[in-house]
Computed example of a mutant assay.
Amino acid sequence: MTARSTAGDLRMIPIDRIDVLNPRDRNEDVFAEIVKNIGAIGLKKPITVTPRPGSDGAERYLLVCGEGRMKALRKLGETRVPALVVQVDDEGAFIMGLAENVARRMYRPLELLAGITQLKVKGYSPAVIAQKTGLTLPYVTDILTLIDQGEERLLVAVERGRVPLTIAIDISRAGNSDKTVQAALQEAYETGQLRGRQLMNARRLVQSRQRLGRSINRHASPQDADVTTSSLVRAYQKEVKRQQLMVRRASFAQQRLLFVTGALRQLFAEENFVTLLRAEGLDALPKYLADRIGPHGSTG
């Protein structure tokens, strides 16, 4: 199904000739750290690309892995990037990218699930998926079992480390029977598979699954058992947008706090303002606020 990749050669590739098949949104702090590290010590590992014919007749390249490194170099003003050029088709590029992210534990839960689902849809057996991604066969088999059962909520909980995969399988096998699910949790507790926070997470997960259904789509009914690649991707995109909105809100709140802090610092530098506060008995500030404002924050 997938063309075998040939040994690649290292080249300096113009960044503007590289196309990203599946661009990812990245945490700004993490990306800033990547830029800082590459700026300080250089690029330790080249990106990987595969050639494709360009519409202008010149060769272009499809990014296989290394989007963060490529963007960091562009941020640093570089126009060319060291790249390992391999000969693979689009399917091979997808598998290579997924395998590298799994190996480096850089994937997000829904990305991994969507990747495994796409490989299954393409006709790969669990054994081949395990071989190509570097995951264990039991892990892939259990993940595919949950995918077949439409257990999207359980899948995400497993990938986020909230519950063990074996417990997710037990919950799935119990179906919608509350008595059977509770018995599975009790057995997991007694055998030491669930302790402390994980037990609490499992109980919350079971409640959410019973109330909202197996899909993480809140509008889905509990009977919805089919999970497709498109539904996983849509859920992933929705989560990305939610996190981006949270980042924007946090940035806006930080800007407002900086403005307020700066304004207070200027006011406390005015002797007349401080005298007025002292006269009204309002010259003391909470310690944490006074520390942020600086030496002018204390009028005592």
Score class of each variant (00 low, 15 high):
residue 252 F to M: 11
residue 216 I to S: 12
residue 74 R to G: 09
residue 223 Q to C: 04
residue 193 Q to V: 08
residue 159 E to T: 04
residue 96 M to T: 06
residue 227 V to I: 10
residue 160 R to S: 11
residue 141 T to Y: 01
residue 202 A to T: 14
residue 265 R to G: 03
residue 184 A to D: 04
residue 204 R to D: 15
residue 26 R to D: 13
residue 296 H to W: 10
residue 65 C to T: 12
residue 110 L to R: 12
residue 11 R to M: 12
residue 135 L to S: 08
residue 40 A to G: 05
residue 262 G to M: 05
residue 288 Y to D: 13
residue 251 S to N: 10
residue 52 R to I: 14
residue 216 I to K: 07
residue 53 P to A: 05
residue 114 A to W: 02
residue 292 R to E: 13
residue 107 Y to S: 01
residue 105 R to G: 07
residue 119 L to W: 04
residue 148 D to G: 05
residue 272 N to L: 07
residue 231 S to C: 01
residue 173 R to L: 13
residue 33 E to S: 13
residue 198 Q to P: 00
residue 153 R to C: 08
residue 172 S to H: 00
residue 192 G to H: 04
residue 128 V to E: 14
residue 51 P to Y: 03
residue 158 V to I: 03
residue 226 D to S: 08
residue 88 V to D: 10
residue 95 I to V: 14
residue 230 S to E: 15
residue 186 Q to W: 01
residue 39 G to E: 15
residue 58 A to F: 13
residue 189 Y to L: 12
residue 247 V to A: 14
residue 166 T to D: 14
residue 201 N to V: 09
residue 267 L to G: 03
residue 99 A to N: 03
residue 168 A to C: 04
residue 162 R to C: 03
residue 38 I to M: 11
residue 213 G to K: 03
residue 298 S to C: 09
residue 138 P to C: 02
residue 36 K to M: 15
residue 245 L to P: 02
residue 200 M to Q: 12
residue 222 P to V: 11
residue 203 R to I: 11
residue 217 N to L: 12
residue 214 R to V: 10
